[in-house]
Design a protein around this nucleic acid. Sequence first.
DNA 1: GAGTGGTCTAGACCACCTA
DNA 2: AGGTGGTCTAGACCACTCC
Lengths: 247, 247
Amino acid sequence: MTPDTDKSPADEIGFKPLYAQVRDRLVRRLVDGTWAPGMPLPSEMELARQLNVSQGTVRKALDSMTADNMLIRRQGRGTFVAEPEESRILFQFYRLVPDVGIASFPDSRVISHGSARATKAEATALGIEEGGDVWRIERIRSLAGQPMLVETITLPADRFPGFGELTEIPNNVYRLYSERWGITIASAGERLKAIAASGRDARKLGCEKGEPLLLISRVARDLEDRPVELRWSRCISRDLHYSVNLR
Amino acid sequence: MTPDTDKSPADEIGFKPLYAQVRDRLVRRLVDGTWAPGMPLPSEMELARQLNVSQGTVRKALDSMTADNMLIRRQGRGTFVAEPEESRILFQFYRLVPDVGIASFPDSRVISHGSARATKAEATALGIEEGGDVWRIERIRSLAGQPMLVETITLPADRFPGFGELTEIPNNVYRLYSERWGITIASAGERLKAIAASGRDARKLGCEKGEPLLLISRVARDLEDRPVELRWSRCISRDLHYSVNLR
DNA sequence: GAGTGGTCTAGACCACCTA
DNA sequence: AGGTGGTCTAGACCACTCC
């Protein structure tokens, strides 16, 4: 079938190939919750009919979304919206690996949790105004009972209404963001530095003041690439390392 | 029959999709130097004829190699072998960015350079025998005249014959590997830690002993995914950070 | 104008899953 | 057996580059 809608908008300034437009439309259905995590999408054929494009074009859009971990495709079963609890999504954003042995997910203990005003750094990272309303959470994370990381999470208040009333904050906050506010974390940028442990952090981590810590500043983004979380982790890397693959 | 645990689908005997076989054959031509960096490849149509597959299958192989930065495709011009001197490739493996301002490439000063026996750690990383012959190079790298990192590079001697006779080692060693030994660095794994500066490193970097440094251990791999370089960088991250994007 | 890669379509067959 | 995604082919048209 030939799409009866405008097919060659070459006169447009912002030209996008058809498969990219299809992708945008499908992403929008993820954003607005039409398709929730875990749900199956219609088949390629069905989507092609709905959108008035060929199956190949739908496939190109789906493949690109799968490459970005938004979808999971299983031959013979169908295409599904990726869930934040799946281990491969979990470790997508968790790059800390023990020097010996296999990676495991740390426990969390919240030590403070409430509303605050955005500092300049927070405002810049989150794309909001300095002094704007944010939620701020501080947690200590442990492996095998051993504190290894203290982290400060900052969230723009307007994207997370009612966050302050939560009585409990689960270990996997990305699943919480998804279930409670329909916000899917799709990508993140991280910046790493080596710093000396402050007195406060040293006390929390049970290490010496001045001990070298790995500082990880993460800006996490949603499906539409808007920043939604700032996370500032200070980590004892004596028996751990941060692992990246460069291609 | 008895469906044991989930097995990966491509666990089968030797089955590979046609486009993956085509990719393998094309990669081999890069490895053996048939197509050198900067050279144009035959057109898709020509390759399809040569390999007796359809243009679409050739395209899928070329697209995958382009995604892995082995090739560069330019509409209307052709497909070219990626060159290690292009800034795109340069920054592919260099993730250190100043906190303010734009990234630039540091100068290098070699402070030692010669043959050695592989330590256990080096042997494990490079997949050679402990005590095997290696080249070892130590360099200090500076930005705007300011030393910011000291690095130790270890190379397996058999992959780099004659390395010891070099009188000068250029700043961009990946270009050297390519031009002199036909070895293309295609990917790398990096591990980061925060450590305290040793007395030796502190002297070289002009910082205090015990100052927190970012330790970056890189294993660089060739087109066939074999480890060919181990690099151990200790970096002053006071005004710099290591930048990663997670998708 | 000729040649290249980029997009889009259409249809075939295969491997896999569920029922 | 019927539906799904995965692969492969063939051909059309477009946008870009070079001559």
